[in-house]
């Protein structure tokens, strides 16, 4: 099952990148997709639950517009800090505890923290995050924990 799915994804990617339908190119695409799928299907999908993966992917799509809006806010904040003549920054490092079940949740939260206003992930594990924040107000917005609740909702976490 994972072999067939990997093969189909790889062949779709080949078609997107080449965009030509001559028989020799299609044959080469099938051969290379088969080779890649044979060597790496256990790494790419493996024993993962495919149905749960699709459900999580749909939840992730619902999360993305909020994240894009946060990215825009983050950049406006960054423009203000960079072009201000006195540069009003107060850098601090902070540690907080989390409890995630999957590595995907850790990855999404770490990327989201990096992309949202004023904070950058420094170290991320399932139990603990180290975050560098650049001003006081942004640190307080992270403490409210809204983002963590959203990521746990994607993960399917029952609190």
């Amino acid at each position: 099952m994972s072999f067939i799915l990997t093969f189909l994804l790889m062949f779709a990617f080949w078609m997107l990148l080449s965009g030509q339908t001559q028989p020799i190119l299609l044959l080469l695409g099938v051969i290379s997709s088969l080779l890649v799928a044979y060597w790496s299907h256990d790494l790419f999908i493996g024993k993962a639950d495919i149905g749960q993966g699709i459900v999580r992917f749909l939840r992730l799509i619902r999360y993305i517009p909020w994240l894009l809006w946060q990215i825009v806010l983050a950049n406006l904040h960054l423009v203000y800090l960079t072009l201000h003549p006195k540069m009003p920054i107060e850098p601090t490092m902070m540690t907080f505890k989390t409890n995630f079940n999957t590595d995907m949740g850790v990855f999404i939260l770490a990327t989201s923290i990096t992309l949202t206003p004023g904070t950058v992930t420094v170290e991320a594990t399932r139990d603990e995050f180290v975050v560098h924040s650049i001003s006081k107000t942004t640190a307080e917005s992270l403490v409210s924990g809204e983002m963590q609740a959203r990521v746990k909702e994607i993960e399917g976490h029952r609190v």
């Binding site: 107060e90 850098p91 601090t92 490092m93 902070m94 505890k97 640190a139 403490v143 924990g145």
Partner: peptide, 10 residues
């Protein structure tokens, strides 16, 4: 970093 370390309990 330039400032001291803080402990935050989320």
């Amino acid at each position: 970093p330039t400032k001291a370390h803080e402990e935050v309990d989320i």
